[in-house]
Design a protein around this nucleic acid. Structure first.
Lengths: 138, 138
DNA sequence: CTTGAAGCTCTAGTGACTAGAGCAATTACA
DNA sequence: TGTAATTGCTCTAGTCACTAGAGCTTCAAG
């Protein structure tokens, strides 16, 4: 039997976040001690680790809810789980591509400021005038 | 003189977002028509374009506030603007690196699901067991 | 038996918007 | 000039995934 603090240390999920997940229905409300404190077992620990892992991978809470739901029905075809993961992969790739465009733009902006005052600072000028951008972004 | 809708079309910033920026003090409250509608001039258009550009580049609203403040004092040294841009660059690079780790992990997870049911679905198993991860993430 | 850490509930705040209700003003066309 | 469609106004509340704080109670160690 773990306290909420134990669970937190073992999974790396912060205590208030565990309570928040309970409120959101991502984890079930656990047993309580005589003094009304939460007491968790191994099963809850595993579920929370699952959630933690999926959050680290960028899955939205709603996706995680679906994945948990699916994992409770191991006899069903796994196309749905595949689709959720595939969509997440696409979204991650899009974000990377987008951020790489920003990186290029920021590099250009931040590296060539050799003005001494704001008046001729490249950072400010580049932000004021989109025409100074080498390529499209946003 | 532009209406808020004109301004929105010209800058690509949505109408409620313009009003939100006004509320946050990022753009000044403009003149009003007799019927209490906002009327903007060229200066406001430029400022909003600046904000739009900076947001596209991922700058936080608070950073933009600083950059606007700086651009109003063109005689000051531009080290501060440089620093904001440099920090933004670092943060973008970190996010790219993080996302690339996730991409690798998700690729592995999403690509090798050849189970027919959730019971032996790699997606679910990989999320349940961190040990299946090729490398660290999160 | 006391002390200090950890737990409890509840409310409110974060960032950067977005949505909707319920009106008023403007504009285009007949 | 009439009217209908569009655009605008304010205000409140919702989004996502937490995070912070107040004010209290319980637990574990010494």
């Amino acid at each position: 039997m773990f306290s909420i603090g134990d669970l937190s240390r073992r999974t790396g999920v912060k205590v208030p976040t565990i309570r928040y997940y309970e409120q959101m229905g991502l984890v079930a409300a656990p047993e309580r001690s005589e003094g009304n404190q939460r007491r968790y077992g191994r099963q809850e620990l595993e579920r929370l680790a699952f959630i933690r892992h999926a959050r680290d991978l960028g899955f939205a809470v709603e996706d995680i809810r679906s994945l948990i739901e699916l994992s409770g029905h191991p006899e069903q075809p796994c196309g749905h789980a595949d689709r959720i993961a595939g969509e997440q992969l696409i979204s991650v790739r899009e974000k990377i591509a987008q951020r790489q465009r920003l990186e290029a733009e920021l590099e250009r902006i931040a590296s060539c400021c050799n003005g001494k005052t704001v008046g001729d600072c490249y950072v400010i000028r580049a932000l004021s005038d989109h025409a100074l951008c080498a390529n499209e972004h946003g």
